[in-house]
Write a protein that binds this DNA or RNA. Sequence first.
DNA 1: TCTTTTTGTAATGTGTAACGTTACATGATA
DNA 2: TATCATGTAACGTTACACATTACAAAAAGA
Lengths: 104, 104
Amino acid sequence: MNDDMIIVSREPIHPGEFLREEYMADLDLSVADLARRLGVTRQTVNDIVREKRGLSPDMCLRLGRLFGTTPQFWMNMQAKVDIWNSMALHADDIEAIEPMAVAL
Amino acid sequence: MNDDMIIVSREPIHPGEFLREEYMADLDLSVADLARRLGVTRQTVNDIVREKRGLSPDMCLRLGRLFGTTPQFWMNMQAKVDIWNSMALHADDIEAIEPMAVAL
DNA sequence: TCTTTTTGTAATGTGTAACGTTACATGATA
DNA sequence: TATCATGTAACGTTACACATTACAAAAAGA
Protein backbone atom coordinates (compact mmCIF):
# COMPACT_ATOMS: atom_id res chain seq x y z
CA MET A 1 0.00 0.00 0.00
CA ASN A 2 2.09 2.91 -1.29
CA ASP A 3 1.28 6.57 -1.83
CA ASP A 4 0.14 5.85 -5.31
CA MET A 5 -2.16 3.01 -4.24
CA ILE A 6 -5.31 4.99 -4.67
CA ILE A 7 -7.96 2.79 -6.17
CA VAL A 8 -10.27 4.95 -8.17
CA SER A 9 -13.69 3.58 -7.52
CA ARG A 10 -15.84 6.62 -8.17
CA GLU A 11 -15.51 9.47 -10.58
CA PRO A 12 -12.78 11.77 -9.27
CA ILE A 13 -13.54 15.41 -8.66
CA HIS A 14 -12.35 17.74 -11.38
CA PRO A 15 -9.63 20.17 -10.27
CA GLY A 16 -11.81 22.94 -11.64
CA GLU A 17 -14.62 22.04 -9.30
CA PHE A 18 -12.23 21.86 -6.38
CA LEU A 19 -10.68 25.17 -7.28
CA ARG A 20 -14.07 26.79 -7.61
CA GLU A 21 -15.59 25.45 -4.43
CA GLU A 22 -12.66 25.15 -2.07
CA TYR A 23 -10.59 28.15 -2.98
CA MET A 24 -12.46 30.74 -5.01
CA ALA A 25 -15.59 30.48 -2.91
CA ASP A 26 -13.82 30.55 0.43
CA LEU A 27 -11.42 33.31 -0.54
CA ASP A 28 -14.01 35.21 -2.52
CA LEU A 29 -11.97 35.19 -5.69
CA SER A 30 -13.48 35.97 -9.07
CA VAL A 31 -12.29 34.40 -12.30
CA ALA A 32 -10.66 37.68 -13.33
CA ASP A 33 -9.15 38.04 -9.90
CA LEU A 34 -7.59 34.62 -9.87
CA ALA A 35 -6.39 34.97 -13.45
CA ARG A 36 -4.63 38.18 -12.54
CA ARG A 37 -2.90 36.64 -9.57
CA LEU A 38 -1.86 33.57 -11.53
CA GLY A 39 -0.57 35.59 -14.42
CA VAL A 40 -2.81 33.91 -16.99
CA THR A 41 -5.84 34.92 -19.02
CA ARG A 42 -9.36 35.02 -17.68
CA GLN A 43 -10.16 32.55 -20.41
CA THR A 44 -7.70 30.05 -18.99
CA VAL A 45 -9.11 30.20 -15.49
CA ASN A 46 -12.65 30.24 -16.77
CA ASP A 47 -12.16 27.08 -18.84
CA ILE A 48 -10.63 25.26 -15.90
CA VAL A 49 -13.33 26.33 -13.51
CA ARG A 50 -16.00 25.39 -16.06
CA GLU A 51 -14.24 22.02 -16.26
CA LYS A 52 -13.61 22.41 -19.94
CA ARG A 53 -9.88 22.18 -19.50
CA GLY A 54 -7.48 20.23 -17.32
CA LEU A 55 -4.52 21.48 -15.36
CA SER A 56 -1.24 21.70 -17.21
CA PRO A 57 2.00 21.20 -15.28
CA ASP A 58 2.54 24.92 -15.63
CA MET A 59 -0.84 25.67 -14.11
CA CYS A 60 -0.14 23.26 -11.26
CA LEU A 61 3.04 25.15 -10.49
CA ARG A 62 1.13 28.43 -10.49
CA LEU A 63 -1.62 27.14 -8.23
CA GLY A 64 0.93 25.63 -5.88
CA ARG A 65 2.80 28.89 -5.71
CA LEU A 66 -0.31 30.97 -5.13
CA PHE A 67 -1.95 28.77 -2.54
CA GLY A 68 1.09 27.31 -0.84
CA THR A 69 0.55 23.72 -1.86
CA THR A 70 2.83 21.40 -3.77
CA PRO A 71 2.41 21.27 -7.53
CA GLN A 72 2.04 17.52 -7.02
CA PHE A 73 -1.15 18.09 -5.10
CA TRP A 74 -2.76 19.50 -8.23
CA MET A 75 -1.00 17.08 -10.55
CA ASN A 76 -2.40 14.16 -8.57
CA MET A 77 -5.88 15.53 -8.71
CA GLN A 78 -5.60 15.98 -12.46
CA ALA A 79 -4.01 12.56 -12.89
CA LYS A 80 -7.00 10.90 -11.29
CA VAL A 81 -9.43 12.38 -13.77
CA ASP A 82 -7.07 11.65 -16.66
CA ILE A 83 -6.84 7.99 -15.64
CA TRP A 84 -10.55 7.84 -15.11
CA ASN A 85 -11.34 9.31 -18.51
CA SER A 86 -8.79 7.18 -20.28
CA MET A 87 -10.13 4.06 -18.61
CA ALA A 88 -13.69 4.99 -19.55
CA LEU A 89 -12.47 5.32 -23.11
CA HIS A 90 -10.17 2.33 -23.60
CA ALA A 91 -11.14 -0.13 -20.89
CA ASP A 92 -11.44 -2.90 -23.43
CA ASP A 93 -7.99 -2.41 -24.93
CA ILE A 94 -6.41 -2.17 -21.50
CA GLU A 95 -8.03 -5.32 -20.20
CA ALA A 96 -6.98 -7.13 -23.34
CA ILE A 97 -3.40 -6.80 -22.15
CA GLU A 98 -2.12 -9.99 -20.57
CA PRO A 99 -0.50 -9.15 -17.21
CA MET A 100 3.02 -10.50 -16.91
CA ALA A 101 4.13 -12.66 -14.04
CA VAL A 102 6.74 -10.29 -12.70
CA ALA A 103 8.85 -10.57 -9.57
CA LEU A 104 11.07 -7.53 -9.33
CA MET B 1 3.68 16.02 5.10
CA ASN B 2 1.25 14.36 2.71
CA ASP B 3 1.68 11.86 -0.10
CA ASP B 4 2.22 14.65 -2.53
CA MET B 5 4.87 16.35 -0.42
CA ILE B 6 7.75 15.28 -2.56
CA ILE B 7 10.19 18.11 -2.87
CA VAL B 8 11.95 17.74 -6.17
CA SER B 9 15.52 18.66 -5.49
CA ARG B 10 17.28 16.82 -8.28
CA GLU B 11 16.29 16.00 -11.81
CA PRO B 12 13.75 13.18 -11.67
CA ILE B 13 14.40 10.04 -13.67
CA HIS B 14 12.48 9.77 -16.88
CA PRO B 15 9.89 6.96 -16.94
CA GLY B 16 11.59 5.74 -20.10
CA GLU B 17 14.85 5.23 -18.28
CA PHE B 18 13.08 3.44 -15.48
CA LEU B 19 11.18 1.26 -17.88
CA ARG B 20 14.32 0.42 -19.79
CA GLU B 21 16.54 -0.36 -16.82
CA GLU B 22 14.15 -1.76 -14.24
CA TYR B 23 11.76 -3.72 -16.38
CA MET B 24 13.02 -4.41 -19.87
CA ALA B 25 16.52 -5.25 -18.71
CA ASP B 26 15.43 -7.48 -15.84
CA LEU B 27 12.71 -9.23 -17.81
CA ASP B 28 14.75 -9.38 -21.00
CA LEU B 29 12.12 -7.56 -23.02
CA SER B 30 12.91 -6.02 -26.39
CA VAL B 31 11.21 -2.89 -27.70
CA ALA B 32 9.22 -4.98 -30.17
CA ASP B 33 8.36 -7.45 -27.45
CA LEU B 34 7.07 -4.87 -25.05
CA ALA B 35 5.17 -3.06 -27.78
CA ARG B 36 3.42 -6.27 -28.70
CA ARG B 37 2.40 -6.97 -25.14
CA LEU B 38 1.19 -3.43 -24.57
CA GLY B 39 -0.77 -3.35 -27.78
CA VAL B 40 1.03 -0.31 -29.16
CA THR B 41 3.55 0.33 -31.94
CA ARG B 42 7.25 -0.30 -31.65
CA GLN B 43 7.63 3.37 -32.37
CA THR B 44 5.68 4.32 -29.29
CA VAL B 45 7.72 2.14 -26.96
CA ASN B 46 10.93 3.17 -28.65
CA ASP B 47 10.23 6.88 -28.24
CA ILE B 48 9.43 6.43 -24.57
CA VAL B 49 12.49 4.31 -23.90
CA ARG B 50 14.66 6.79 -25.79
CA GLU B 51 13.11 9.46 -23.57
CA LYS B 52 11.76 11.35 -26.52
CA ARG B 53 8.20 11.01 -25.32
CA GLY B 54 6.41 11.07 -22.00
CA LEU B 55 3.83 8.66 -20.66
CA SER B 56 0.23 9.39 -21.59
CA PRO B 57 -2.53 8.38 -19.17
CA ASP B 58 -3.35 5.61 -21.60
CA MET B 59 0.20 4.34 -21.53
CA CYS B 60 0.23 4.46 -17.73
CA LEU B 61 -2.85 2.29 -17.70
CA ARG B 62 -1.19 -0.18 -20.05
CA LEU B 63 2.02 -0.34 -18.06
CA GLY B 64 0.08 -0.76 -14.85
CA ARG B 65 -1.93 -3.56 -16.34
CA LEU B 66 1.09 -5.35 -17.77
CA PHE B 67 3.35 -5.07 -14.75
CA GLY B 68 0.81 -5.17 -11.96
CA THR B 69 1.34 -1.67 -10.66
CA THR B 70 -1.11 1.17 -10.28
CA PRO B 71 -1.44 3.57 -13.17
CA GLN B 72 -0.73 6.27 -10.57
CA PHE B 73 2.72 4.88 -10.05
CA TRP B 74 3.60 5.77 -13.63
CA MET B 75 1.60 8.97 -13.61
CA ASN B 76 3.53 10.19 -10.58
CA MET B 77 6.84 9.42 -12.20
CA GLN B 78 5.80 11.32 -15.30
CA ALA B 79 4.39 14.18 -13.25
CA LYS B 80 7.74 14.72 -11.58
CA VAL B 81 9.53 15.23 -14.86
CA ASP B 82 6.70 17.40 -16.19
CA ILE B 83 6.93 19.65 -13.16
CA TRP B 84 10.69 19.70 -13.36
CA ASN B 85 10.68 20.65 -17.03
CA SER B 86 7.99 23.24 -16.62
CA MET B 87 9.84 24.78 -13.71
CA ALA B 88 13.06 24.86 -15.68
CA LEU B 89 11.17 26.69 -18.39
CA HIS B 90 9.03 29.19 -16.51
CA ALA B 91 10.70 29.55 -13.12
CA ASP B 92 10.68 33.32 -13.44
CA ASP B 93 6.97 33.60 -14.21
CA ILE B 94 6.10 31.23 -11.42
CA GLU B 95 8.14 33.02 -8.82
CA ALA B 96 6.64 36.30 -9.93
CA ILE B 97 3.34 35.07 -8.50
CA GLU B 98 2.62 36.54 -5.10
CA PRO B 99 1.62 33.74 -2.72
CA MET B 100 -1.67 34.38 -0.97
CA ALA B 101 -2.04 34.26 2.75
CA VAL B 102 -4.50 31.43 2.89
CA ALA B 103 -5.92 29.60 5.86
CA LEU B 104 -8.22 26.89 4.64
C1' DT C 1 25.66 -18.30 -48.61
C1' DC C 2 21.34 -16.51 -49.96
C1' DT C 3 16.72 -15.40 -48.56
C1' DT C 4 13.32 -14.06 -45.35
C1' DT C 5 12.00 -12.15 -41.22
C1' DT C 6 12.59 -9.25 -37.19
C1' DT C 7 14.34 -5.23 -35.00
C1' DG C 8 15.27 -0.33 -33.86
C1' DT C 9 14.44 4.06 -35.49
C1' DA C 10 13.73 8.24 -38.76
C1' DA C 11 10.20 10.89 -41.17
C1' DT C 12 5.54 12.29 -41.86
C1' DG C 13 0.60 13.27 -41.08
C1' DT C 14 -3.39 13.38 -37.73
C1' DG C 15 -6.00 14.42 -33.68
C1' DT C 16 -6.29 16.59 -29.37
C1' DA C 17 -5.51 19.86 -25.80
C1' DA C 18 -3.72 24.10 -23.51
C1' DC C 19 -3.12 28.79 -24.36
C1' DG C 20 -3.48 33.79 -25.87
C1' DT C 21 -6.14 37.06 -28.54
C1' DT C 22 -10.18 39.15 -29.96
C1' DA C 23 -14.92 40.12 -29.45
C1' DC C 24 -19.15 40.95 -27.03
C1' DA C 25 -23.20 40.97 -23.93
C1' DT C 26 -24.17 41.78 -19.21
C1' DG C 27 -23.53 44.08 -15.03
C1' DA C 28 -21.27 47.34 -11.86
C1' DT C 29 -19.62 51.96 -11.00
C1' DA C 30 -18.42 56.72 -11.64
C1' DT D 1 -25.56 57.93 -19.17
C1' DA D 2 -20.86 56.75 -20.09
C1' DT D 3 -17.12 53.95 -18.67
C1' DC D 4 -15.08 50.02 -17.14
C1' DA D 5 -14.89 45.11 -15.37
C1' DT D 6 -16.60 40.49 -15.77
C1' DG D 7 -17.68 35.89 -17.79
C1' DT D 8 -17.48 33.46 -21.88
C1' DA D 9 -17.67 32.23 -27.04
C1' DA D 10 -14.83 31.80 -31.24
C1' DC D 11 -10.51 31.41 -33.50
C1' DG D 12 -5.62 30.47 -34.57
C1' DT D 13 -1.24 28.73 -32.69
C1' DT D 14 1.65 25.45 -30.68
C1' DA D 15 2.94 21.16 -28.58
C1' DC D 16 2.64 16.37 -28.12
C1' DA D 17 1.16 11.42 -28.28
C1' DC D 18 0.26 8.25 -31.75
C1' DA D 19 -0.06 5.31 -36.08
C1' DT D 20 1.80 4.63 -40.60
C1' DT D 21 5.37 4.13 -43.76
C1' DA D 22 10.04 3.34 -44.88
C1' DC D 23 14.60 1.42 -44.33
C1' DA D 24 19.15 -0.24 -42.80
C1' DA D 25 21.12 -3.64 -39.93
C1' DA D 26 20.88 -7.87 -37.52
C1' DA D 27 18.97 -12.49 -36.78
C1' DA D 28 17.04 -16.73 -38.34
C1' DG D 29 16.18 -20.11 -41.66
C1' DA D 30 16.71 -22.31 -46.23
